[in-house]
Every structure is written in C-alpha cells, then in structure tokens.
Amino acid sequence: MTESTAAALAGHTFATGLSRQHIDRLAAHATAIEIPAGQRIFAEGQLAARFWLVISGRVALDLQIPGRGRLIVETLGPGDELGLSWLGPIRQWQFGAVAQLPVTALEFQSAAVEALCDYDHELGYKLTRRLLATAVSRLQAARIRILDLYAVPVRSAGGP
C-alpha cells in the first residue's frame, strides 16, 4: 500500500464513513491502475475475481447478442464500483466491461478482500452494506429502464 492509494481510497464515495484504520486495511489490498480507452477489462463468462472503484473515466458494461451485435447495458463513472459478479454463487462475469474513456481506478483482488472481511467482521459488515447499496441502486435503475419511460403513452396513442 502507498499513501497515495490510501488517499485515493479515502476520497472515493465508496469509502465515505469508513474509519482511518479500515481505509488503511482495505487500501493494503488496492492497486491504483490506469486503463486506456478501448481496453477490455473483463469479458462475459470469465472468472470474476476482482473489483474496482472507478476514480475517473467511464466504463461500459456490455453483452454480445447474436444478430444484434455488442449492446451496452450500463455505463459506470467516477464514484462507482465496478464488478459485482464475484459476490454471486457462480463467480463468472455476467457482462463484459470495456473502458469507454481512459479510466483510473483502484483494483482489488476479491479473495484477499473476502479474507480481510473474515478477519475483521466490522469492516466486512460495512463493505457488505456498501456493496448491497450498489446492487440495490443498479437494480432500481434497471427496473426504471424496464418501464421504458420514454415510450408513447398508451392514452396518447389514440389521442391528439
């Protein structure tokens, strides 16, 4: 861990409210990385063993659909957490991720963070709350998009 890694973590939305000790412990497992635009970060079906806290840039989550090409499912940016599939029962990426703009991020090996959480349950609880909040936020956003808000309202279709 470098001081700059700990400082970057402390400044990230995901770490808001964590104690200095918890930030230092988590930062010990973080690596500051830069990803050039266009570089694939992970692909659908690969082993999901890492996650990232995005500091700058933009990442597109995508999915290859036969006959329709590569569709973007969602984009993530500064302050976002990238990578939730390592939390699931099948540790495989459900979607791919590619840097849409140059990205700086903190990268974590999920096994190391899980081991840290087993050792420090309080930190584990706090991380779980944050990851759950991320998952809830993505779920709600996905549900809103399923509503297809900008479609022509049914009452307008035969109206003026």
Partner: peptide, 17 residues
C-alpha cells in the same frame, strides 16, 4: 444518457437520475 445503445455510442447508458 440513454436507456439502450449499441457499441457505437460513447455516452452514458443509465437512468437520467
């Protein structure tokens, strides 16, 4: 931001909120 896009789109894909 848009609700859906193909790989040719370089903007956000998300809910406007």
């Amino acid at each position: 931001t848009v609700d859906r896009a193909d790989a040719g789109w370089h903007g956000h894909v998300s809910v406007v909120t």
